[in-house]
Write a protein that binds this DNA or RNA. Structure first.
Length: 376
DNA sequence: TGTTAGTTCAG
DNA sequence: TGAACTAAC
């Protein structure tokens, strides 16, 4: 997209200076750093992350300065900051807020990031995705701030681990941006050639229940409701909810990506596509097996007290923990359906996870052995 | 980066 | 008996 724009502008005789500032490490920098497959970008996440970590990071001391050629053209006057309803706030108010949020996070909460990204009801994550996607803070600024924080000699081992995890999150973000930069075919085409024709469904009777957070699986539903309520979903819940759509319902990852795109506060197509392809097992790296999450097991391990489920699913506030995370077989399944004080009853499971996952894996295996290999 | 089945080993 | 580790999908 950017390259097409650049080409068109240059053809029209307008000078263009392209500057990568969405990622912390520009895609072409790591591509240049690697030896094999010169200049074509990384399709392997692991290889990219290694190269990323070795990339020298010059100190960020000043804002990036762009040399923008001045071009005379007819145009309505550009809107001024005050016209955006900001009450006359200075135009960099977004930047200052984002920077302040980043600094506040790094001061202390960041030291628990490792736990934060695993446990949905745990300590806070950085919540910088929206600011990063809109450019009110640059990834390299965040990265520099992390490096600076990590220079603290009195950090505990676990705290250092958290800062490393934070860095790694930025690296993974860069990986997906890099994929979009080099493999810009169609954002809808799975990068994994042999998965391009896997028959994912576009419809499923439970698709609406998934969207509304009424699948009967608390971790999935809590995530979807958090998304609707706040424009953000915890990464653990994202993985489980996405896996549920792709594998339990067998629905195309693009359906899920587009459903979330309307609600998510961040706006980054490259990351949405990259993450969804990753979960669906059709992304850059050939998954040896689809990572099918067991939504109940995930809840048991990562939301053992049901705090996250209860926070976002009012119907479950009175339900004891075993009902939330245990095995609702014939016996205690009904427990969840009980109307509580006249509230809407929490639905029973829309599909049986064990059976659905087994069915999907069988279809997946058949495809990989047959048509998938034939189609190369 | 996940799950499950089957194994080993401590208590 | 169950935690912990391994292999295989």
């Amino acid at each position: 997209m950017q390259r097409r724009l650049q080409a068109a502008l240059e053809e029209a005789g307008i000078g263009v200076l392209a500057v990568h500032d969405a990622s912390a490490v520009a895609p072409d920098e790591t591509a240049a750093a690697r030896t094999a497959d010169e200049g074509r970008g990384y399709s392997s996440r692991a290889a990219y992350l290694l190269a990323w970590a070795e990339q020298p990071r010059p100190p960020v001391t000043a804002s990036l300065r762009l040399a923008v050629p001045m071009v005379e053209c007819d145009s309505d006057p550009l809107p001024q900051a005050a016209e955006f309803g900001g009450g006359g706030e200075s135009p960099d108010v977004g930047e200052r807020h984002a920077r302040a949020a980043c600094d506040a996070y790094l001061a202390a909460p960041a030291l628990q990031y490792a736990a934060a990204r695993e446990v949905p009801a745990g300590p806070p994550t950085a919540r910088l995705s929206a600011a990063l996607s809109f450019g009110t803070i640059a990834a390299r600024t965040v990265l520099a701030a992390i490096d600076e924080r990590a220079a603290d000699r009195f950090l505990l081992v676990e705290e250092r681990t958290s800062l490393d995890a934070l860095r790694r999150s930025l690296a993974e973000r860069d990986f997906f941006l890099q994929l979009a930069w080099f493999f810009e075919g169609s954002p809808d085409a799975p990068l994994q050639a042999r998965m391009r024709h896997f028959p994912f469904a576009r419809e499923h009777p439970a698709l609406t229940a998934w969207r509304d957070g009424r699948t009967g699986y608390p971790l999935v539903d809590a995530g979807m409701r958090q998304l609707h309520a706040t424009g953000w979903m915890h990464p653990r819940a994202r993985a489980v909810a996405a896996s549920f759509l792709c594998f339990d319902l067998g629905v195309d990852w693009r359906v899920g990506r587009d459903a979330w795109e309307r609600d998510l506060e961040e706006d980054d197509a490259a990351l949405a596509t990259g993450n969804w392809q990753w979960i669906a097992g059709v992304g850059a790296d050939l998954a040896q097996f689809p990572r099918v999450y067991n939504p109940r097991k995930q809840a048991r391990v990562y939301d053992p007290a049901g705090a996250y489920a209860r926070r976002w699913i009012p119907e479950l506030r009175g339900v004891p923990v075993p009902g939330l995370t245990g095995m609702p077989r014939e016996g205690n399944e009904g427990q969840l359906r009980l109307p509580l004080f006249g509230a809407d009853p929490y639905p029973g499971p829309v599909v049986d996870h064990e059976r659905a996952a087994r069915d999907f894996l069988r279809r997946y295996g058949e495809f990989r052995r047959g048509a998938g290999n034939a189609a190369q």
